[in-house]
Simulated assay, not measured.
Amino acid sequence: MLHLVTGGARSGKSRYAQEQALSLSTQPVYVATAKVWDEDFAQRIQRHKAERGAAWINYEEELYVSRLPLDGQTVVIDCVTLWLTNFFALHAYDMDKTLSAIQEEIRVLQQKAGVFIIVTNEIGMGVHAETAVGRRFTDLQGWVNQYIARMADTVVLMVAGIPVVIKGEA
């Protein structure tokens, strides 16, 4: 099963995804895709781990999530935007290579047994990016979101903390 949870910044996406995972498993898996950029961000990550508590199995993987031991698990992958950023940097901002790499990761994950709840952002609904690379990234994010949404069993758009089901049944 593949579920996509999307929305704007601070819309409640991660909280909702975690609640869904906990309703399905007593020991869900949380995959953080963020790269630790500085000490402040490292402290934020530690705070989030502590908030999730001991019930969670935690992994940090910036690129190759599909290589983690996730078969048969209930998994929250948070988030596509940071994951995509890592691939974009790895592939020197080449859109085609980046898109291909992350689509392959998603395709492999979809073939695994388990429940995958993927969190993403709707960055294209916000302010128009000022730079050319920012506009290219916004396009990439939109294409990746569409790719995952096509394969997903359910898609939930979070609006002000309220889940709005736009595909399937929550």
Score class of each variant (00 low, 15 high):
155 V>Y: 05
166 I>N: 05
44 R>F: 07
117 I>L: 14
56 W>P: 00
115 V>F: 05
111 Q>L: 13
128 H>E: 13
148 I>L: 13
14 S>H: 09
11 S>I: 08
49 K>F: 06
66 S>C: 09
102 I>D: 00
19 E>F: 00
97 K>R: 15
132 A>H: 12
83 W>T: 06
11 S>A: 14
168 G>E: 12
130 E>Y: 07
57 I>P: 00
110 Q>E: 14
79 C>P: 11
10 R>Q: 14
140 L>H: 11
25 S>R: 06
164 V>D: 00
68 L>Y: 11
7 G>D: 08
61 E>K: 10
170 A>I: 12
105 E>T: 07
144 V>R: 11
92 A>L: 08
147 Y>P: 04
70 L>H: 10
27 Q>I: 00
1 M>K: 08
70 L>Y: 04
95 M>W: 00
47 R>T: 15
40 D>T: 13
148 I>Y: 10
67 R>I: 00
150 R>G: 06
35 K>R: 15
148 I>D: 00
49 K>H: 13
125 M>K: 00
126 G>W: 05
25 S>I: 01
40 D>E: 15
147 Y>A: 11
7 G>N: 09
121 N>P: 10
96 D>E: 15
108 V>E: 12
128 H>R: 13
32 A>E: 04
60 E>R: 04
139 D>A: 11
76 V>D: 00
64 Y>N: 14
110 Q>F: 12
140 L>I: 04
116 F>I: 10
97 K>H: 09
109 L>S: 09
41 F>S: 06
12 G>Y: 10
86 N>W: 03
112 K>C: 02
83 W>P: 06
42 A>G: 05
4 L>P: 01
60 E>L: 08
151 M>F: 08
92 A>K: 15
169 E>G: 06
66 S>G: 01
113 A>N: 12
90 L>V: 01
29 V>P: 11
109 L>E: 10
118 I>P: 10
63 L>F: 15
58 N>K: 03
150 R>W: 04
158 M>Q: 12
62 E>D: 06
132 A>P: 08
100 S>L: 14
152 A>V: 08
48 H>C: 02
